[in-house]
Design a protein around this nucleic acid. Structure first.
Length: 581
RNA sequence: CUGCGCGUGGGGAAGCUUGGCAUCCCGCGACGCUUGGGACGUCGAGAUCGCUGGUUCGAAUCCAGCCGCGCAGACCA
């Protein structure tokens, strides 16, 4: 700790609140809606510069530094080597991997004075691969784990929720390079465990879930998610079996159809359904439940229409659909396209009589009989439609898990929680090493392509998640490991000579004991100091007041609000023990 | 990008429909008083009412354009 700065009012300069820039607000700024955003502003951690761009003030920076230190220690522990790559990249780097085009408007692009195209890095697979390609020649140099803690830029379509979705943020990103799959698996597992230790040490409650790889490419991937209403993802979890997955990927047992299907080999029969378009309308009209209907969704996969069939009450998982079709560009078909291929509009579509279009049906329709489906004629539906008899389809799991579903193997209840993603690990495979020509010679002297993994942690998101998890009506309650300060010493009246001496001594004792302490020496009434300490979220407070006459001070734990009277001389150790626990 | 909402001293809000001296709470400075949960009193500072243009004798208020911010939709740490 640097001890620069001149003494003010004759005091030695330690961490004295009166000298610090902690601009707390009594009211929530109007623009903040989510809890962590409101509190980051109110507690004086951050100030907004622009949409999705924030100034991190003193308190935020202290927390972020601590988070980064924990990340460093755990990354180093798995053999990670820290580097720092630039945020400014030439276009060619991204053109090589093909992502210059793929990233589209999400990438900040600029030109230098000669008109050469550049961009701000959204992630660093390309650059890390560039470094590796330049230097790695032999299998003897593998494996490698390289990481950095660095600023990323993404031109988000809609920045929001304070620091949760921003255009500039700090990411720990690491990359593994291995000769073959077993090496990658090992690197992946190391990261998985390191991430668990990092998030544990940061005091977070989280789950690791199976995830979708997105634009990163690659085979396997896990996300680390913290449940909070401020999140944008949905996590499906089963407390009793431990199953957890992103809603995009989750599988489940759906609730059975509410009534059994009619028996027998009945032929499809058209009936009039004037102005009944939605599943609900048809259900009401026919008096049959939604589970007795087939839902027909027309999707366009790379320009070709594909019919997705689901049970009436189910919804399509576009991620699963994309995986099944392997398409790159997938979207709902436009009304004109639907009319062209089906001769009817959405609301009257069905699989019967469809010849030229691929039909993908959800497995929940397998074995069903005599259901209701659109007739491909406006205002008409068919009854007695049976898959496999009245039309042919390929069956896949296409359904998005819904509330009320149960675990696929055991039937145990599932929960769905909104969550925020704090980390993501990918087995990249050969995507970048292939496109950018990263090869080494193996033991036999043959050139082989290196296999890669990539692993990210959103640093600010850890801060936000901690705030979201533990905030209460009085403000932030930070885990001691990442709090801007671990202890605040609050003399009720610092003007009082005895209290002043005790406070100064306690500050020194805390420092000597390795505690990150701040002394609230402000000439404020005690209420103000208590409120600020609570708002800022300092995990322990030592109050020096009347009981000092008996040699006692009060230690209050922020999270539980429990207080204990402790002899002045023991207060520092008392807190040390608790912080370590 | 589309839809909805909002821009008034540092923070939070009124005022706008029906043009006529810039209003309240908090915060800030000085002094006094006070010191275990955002005290009190006196005095004081601080605003081109987002910007530009228009209507008008006169615009925070009406009209037009633009900019910014937030929320809901397609992306992701």
């Amino acid at each position: 700790m640097l001890e620069l700065g001149l003494p003010r009012k004759g005091l030695p300069f330690f961490m004295r609140w009166s000298h610090l820039f902690i601009p707390t607000l009594r009211e929530n700024p109007a623009e903040a809606e989510v809890i962590s955003h409101q509190l980051l502003l109110r507690a004086g951690y951050v100030r907004q510069l622009s949409a999705g761009i924030y100034n991190y003030l003193f308190l935020a920076q202290r927390s972020l530094n601590k988070i980064q230190q924990i990340i460093r220690e755990e990354m180093d522990a798995i053999g990670g080597q820290e580097m720092l790559l630039p945020a400014l990249h030439p276009a060619e780097l991204w053109q090589e991997s093909g992502r210059w085009d793929v990233m589209g408007d999400n990438m900040f692009r600029l030109k230098d004075r000669f008109g050469r195209p550049l961009c701000l890095g959204m992630t660093h697979e390309e650059n890390m691969t560039f470094v590796a390609r330049g230097e790695l020649r032999s299998y003897k140099q593998l494996p490698q784990i390289w990481y950095q803690i660095q600023t990323k830029f993404r031109d988000e379509p809609r920045p929001k929720s304070g620091l949760l979705r921003v255009r500039q943020f700090i990411m720990k990103d690491s990359y593994s390079f291995d000769l073959a799959k077993p090496g990658l698996d090992a690197a992946y597992d190391k990261h998985y465990e390191a991430y668990r230790r990092i998030f544990d040490r940061c005091g977070l409650k989280y789950v690791a879930v199976e995830a979708h790889s997105g634009s990163m490419g690659g085979s396997q991937s896990h996300e680390f998610m913290v449940a909070t209403s401020a999140g944008e993802d949905f996590v499906v979890s089963c407390p009793s079996t431990g199953y957890a997955a992103n809603l995009e990927k989750a599988v489940s047992r759906s609730v059975p159809p509410s009534i059994p299907d009619p028996e027998g080999d009945l032929a499809p029969e058209k009936f009039h359904t004037p102005n009944r378009k939605t599943i609900a309308e048809v259900a009401e009209f026919t008096g049959l439940p939604e589970t007795s209907q087939m839902k027909s969704l027309v999707m366009t996969v790379d320009g070709t229409p594909v019919l997705a069939l689901l049970r009436g009450d189910h919804s399509l998982s576009e991620t699963k659909f994309a995986d099944v079709t392997g398409g790159k560009e997938i979207r709902p078909a436009h009304p004109e396209e639907i009319r062209q291929h089906f001769g009817a509009d959405a609301g009257s579509l069905g699989p019967v009589g469809i010849k030229k279009i691929r039909i993908l049906a959800d497995v929940a329709l397998q074995g069903r009989r005599n259901m209701i489906a659109g007739a491909n004629e406006n205002d008409y539906h068919l009854k007695n439609v049976t898959p496999g008899e009245d039309f042919q389809a390929e069956f896949f799991d296409l359904r998005q898990v819904a509330e009320g579903d149960t675990e696929i193997n055991t039937g145990a209840p599932l929960e769905i929680h909104k969550s925020v993603e704090i980390g993501h690990i990918f087995k990249l495979g050969y995507k970048y090493s292939e496109s950018m020509g990263l090869k080494v010679t193996n033991e036999s002297g043959e050139e082989v392509t290196v296999i890669m993994g990539s692993y990210g942690i959103g640093v600010e998101r850890i801060l936000c998640a901690a705030i979201e998890l533990y905030a209460d009506k009085d403000g932030i309650s930070m885990p001691p490991s990442i709090a801007p300060f671990q202890v605040v010493i609050t003399p009720v009246n610092y003007v009082d000579a005895n209290q002043k001496r005790a406070a100064d001594d306690l500050l020194a004792a805390c420092k000597a004991g390795g505690l990150d302490a701040v002394l609230d020496d402000r000439d404020e009434r005690p209420g103000v100091k208590f409120k600020d300490a609570d708002l800022v979220g300092i995990p322990y407070r030592i109050t020096i007041g009347k009981k000092l006459a008996q040699g006692m001070v009060e230690v209050v734990e922020r999270r539980t609000k429990q207080s204990a009277d402790v002899p002045v001389g023991e207060a520092a150790q008392y807190i040390q023990q608790r912080v370590r626990a």
